[in-house]
Nucleic acid binder design. Structure first.
Lengths: 64, 64
DNA sequence: TATTAATGCAATATATATATTGCATAATGT
DNA sequence: ACATTATGCAATATATATATTGCATTAATA
């Protein structure tokens, strides 16, 4: 399933997928695919995304 | 770095690495290596571990 | 309308998470 | 002392996360 919380947090910081990706040091596709729910990021990548967006794991990646 | 919070939560439920691994459907080594901080689990695996131990991502995998 | 930015998609390549097996050792119980 | 359980470690194999490139499309903007 899509990760809309991630997308919302990114948009709230006014970052494009590419800007977020550059900030973290991954490719734009990686961010795009995570938002689309098409794969399964590593914990370290999740943590990097959280730090970049000033959120916690539960904020962005906890489901239900 | 070691994941002592994971180990503590597992021990608190009186589960061996092997029992936890079986419950989740991964190998014992995978659990052992995560506890030792020797690799970087996927988000889905983290979520499975959390559900098995009745914890959240922040409880077990958030650092500092 | 033309241009640019943002995003999705697809193919191939590479790095690495995870499985599997087997062995060593420490801890625990008999 | 012996047996058993839990854990760590190492090697090889496989699956998959991630990179890279390029193209298509949508949305925004001049």
């Amino acid at each position: 399933m899509k990760n809309l919380k991630l997308k919302a947090a990114r948009v709230e910081k006014n970052l494009s997928q590419q800007e977020l990706a550059e900030q973290i040091g991954v490719s734009r596709q990686t961010i795009g695919l995570i938002e689309l729910g098409k794969y399964n990021p590593s914990l370290q990548l999740c943590l990097s995304i959280c730090r970049a967006l000033s959120k916690t794991l539960d904020d962005l990646f906890w489901e239900e």
